[in-house]
Amino acid sequence: MRAIGGYFNLELSCKGDIPHADGVFLNTGRNSLEYVLRSLGNIQKVYLPYFTCEVILEPLLKLQIEYEFYSINEKFELVEDFLLAHGEYLIYTNYFGIKDSYVRRLAVIYGMQLIVDNAQAFYTEHIPSINTIYSPRKFLGLPDGGIAYANGYYEVEERDISYDRCSHLLKRYDLGATGGYDDFHANSAKLKGLPIRQLSYLTEALMYSVDYEKIKEDRKRNFEILHTVLGDMNLLNTLSEDQYECPMVYPYYSLDIGLRKKLIENGVYVAIYWPNVFGWCESESIEYKMAKNLIPIPIDQRYDLDSMEYILNIIQG
């Protein structure tokens, strides 16, 4: 029975449609991959890149699916093409949301044997008949969530509950980024091993409260501001060639070994994508060098021109 009266809940207004509304909304990005794998049925083997987050292994290990790593080049593209046998699939990561055009090329080559990891490319349109996963919390202030498109069906009846994974989101308002940092890591750890469930009512309501077009415009504007100044210094020289709907970060590839530390010391928190690569790859590999030297600069909707100029002053100072 619906409750009437009593205390108030959070006031979350509905801004309109959610991107990928025709996908399957689940509780985590890694469970979106699990959904795809379960829906496909008899999988013999999966190929995945060395340069990726280790959580992608979680559903593969859980389902006891054989996997093999492959290498990429300095353009984040396959070093060599695959001849996939029946029951074999290729996972490709749309790195930083800048490889949309390359994903379309792979879709033509591998068709329904391709699984696109769009965790870093939330705004990239799903290609019909191509298995695809998204992780909206990489772009939005959410406790969890994932979206799947699969060439098959798997029944998920139970809905998740996510209120106990929101403390870092709330603390950041009152205490700032450092005040909620420990909670962020603790809440992220809670996502490990979660059973595959439908998206929670709370996370769904949070997603409906977002102005997606404004976020997209802000991100693209900030990306272009940084690229206009840093483009010639960026050793990642493919950004101007690639076509993308909306990047997640500005990937700045620099051999300045002190730059990451300098940014962090000045309050610009830049992550490492991904530290697990250091254990998977040789130090001379492209993947190792990318994980070590590529700095993902924040460009998201929280920041304006002044923020971008602040970042540029640190880099150029």
Results as ranks from 00 to 15, higher is better:
A3V: 13
Y7H: 09
Y7V: 11
F8P: 00
N9P: 01
N9A: 11
N9D: 13
E11K: 14
L12Q: 03
S13Q: 12
K15M: 14
K15C: 10
G16C: 04
A21F: 11
A21H: 12
D22E: 14
F25S: 05
F25I: 01
N27F: 06
T28G: 11
G29F: 06
G29D: 09
S32E: 06
I56Q: 07
E58I: 10
L60T: 00
L63M: 12
I65H: 04
I65N: 03
E66A: 15
Y67K: 04
E68A: 15
F69H: 12
F69T: 05
K75Q: 12
D81S: 15
L84N: 08
A85W: 00
L90Q: 09
T93G: 04
T93E: 08
K99I: 00
L106N: 08
V108G: 10
V108W: 07
G111A: 02
V116Q: 08
N118R: 04
A119N: 03
Q120M: 08
A121W: 01
F122M: 03
F122R: 02
I127N: 08
I127S: 06
I130D: 07
I130A: 10
I130R: 06
T132N: 07
G141S: 11
L142A: 09
L142K: 05
D144Y: 03
G145C: 06
G146A: 04
I147A: 10
I147P: 09
A148K: 01
Y149F: 15
N151Y: 04
N151Q: 08
N151D: 04
Y153R: 03
E155C: 10
S162T: 11
S162G: 02
R165G: 00
K171H: 06
D174I: 11
G176L: 05
A177L: 12
T178F: 13
Y181K: 13
D183G: 00
K190V: 01
G193T: 04
I196A: 11
L199F: 11
L199S: 05
L199M: 15
L199P: 07
A205I: 00
S209V: 06
E213I: 11
E213R: 13
K214H: 11
K214G: 07
I215P: 01
K216A: 01
K216D: 00
K216P: 01
D218Y: 03
R219T: 01
K220Y: 05
N222M: 02
F223K: 01
T228I: 10
V229H: 12
L235Y: 12
Y244F: 15
S254Q: 06
S254I: 02
S254C: 14
S254N: 10
G258V: 00
K261A: 15
L263Y: 08
I264T: 07
E265C: 09
Y269G: 02
A271E: 13
I272Y: 10
W274Q: 05
W274P: 09
P275V: 11
N276M: 04
N276T: 11
E284R: 13
K289I: 12
A291Y: 09
L294D: 02
I297F: 06
P298V: 07
D300P: 03
D300Q: 02
Q301V: 00
Q301S: 14
M308F: 08
Q316I: 14
G317M: 03
G317W: 07
G317S: 05
